[in-house]
Amino acid sequence: MNRRAERLAPVVDMALKAEREAARQLGLVQGQLVQAQRKLAELERYRLDYQQQWIRNGQQGVTGQWLINYQRFLSQLETAVEQQNRAVEWHQGAVDKARAAWQEKYARLEGLRKLVERYREEARLAADKYEQRQLDEFAQRLRPAPD
């Protein structure tokens, strides 16, 4: 390995650690988003069940107090759904930010890896040229001198 590539090794290691940490963070916030989405789906399913209960009970006749309680509870349920919608949106924003951060770290890491590979290739080509020159010189020395 050549010196330029060797000097970049610690930088590549740091970039790799940063990329892995960004990937870990992305996974974490994606999990939180999934949990928030599940909770929202659960609330929406509960709201639908409650509305269907209203239809069933409404067909049999209900009291005024039952209707007041139903409307109050449905209003609270709507508020909870709205709050959970906002939570899902917030978590989606966090996922988007974490994904952008990870993509930036990944691109930096890949750029560094390509640079190191280019340095290695340049060193290999230089070594090949040097070796070919050495062989050519050796071949010149082995030729018999013209009379």
Rank of each mutant, 00 (worst) to 15 (best):
E21V: 13
A139N: 12
E82M: 05
R72N: 14
L40G: 04
E89R: 03
A22M: 05
Y106Q: 15
R38Q: 05
Y106V: 13
A22D: 09
T63C: 13
E82D: 13
T63P: 15
Q65L: 14
G61L: 09
A127R: 06
A9E: 14
E6S: 14
Q132A: 03
F73R: 06
A87I: 01
Q140I: 06
F73S: 12
D128T: 00
A22P: 04
R47C: 01
R133H: 11
Q92F: 05
L8C: 03
A5R: 04
Q103I: 13
A100D: 12
L67W: 14
Y46F: 12
L48Y: 04
L48K: 04
Y119K: 07
Q60L: 14
Q60M: 12
V116R: 06
Q59T: 14
M1W: 03
Q32S: 11
G93C: 08
E44R: 06
E121M: 10
G58W: 11
R99Y: 15
E122C: 01
Q30Y: 07
L33R: 05
R38Y: 00
V95K: 03
K17Q: 10
A87L: 06
K105I: 08
K114I: 14
E137G: 06
R7A: 14
Q59E: 09
R20Q: 12
F138R: 13
D13L: 09
Y70N: 08
R7N: 10
Q83G: 12
E42F: 01
R133V: 09
Q60P: 07
H91V: 08
L125I: 02
R3L: 11
R7D: 13
G27T: 07
R72V: 12
D49M: 03
Q134V: 08
F73D: 11
K105F: 05
R72C: 00
Y46M: 05
E44N: 04
V95W: 10
L74Q: 07
M1H: 04
P146I: 00
A127F: 01
A22Q: 02
K114P: 01
Q30S: 10
R7W: 08
R20W: 00
L43Y: 12
N2E: 08
L28N: 09
Q71G: 07
V81I: 09
L135R: 15
V95C: 13
N57T: 07
R72T: 14
E6F: 05
Y50G: 05
A126C: 04
Q30W: 08
V29G: 02
N2H: 02
R133C: 09
L16E: 15
P146R: 02
I55M: 11
N2P: 00
A145H: 03
R7M: 14
N57D: 15
E21M: 09
L40P: 09
S75H: 03
G61Q: 10
E117G: 03
E42K: 01
D147C: 07
W66Q: 13
D49A: 02
K105H: 10
A101L: 12
R99W: 15
Q84S: 07
Q51T: 06
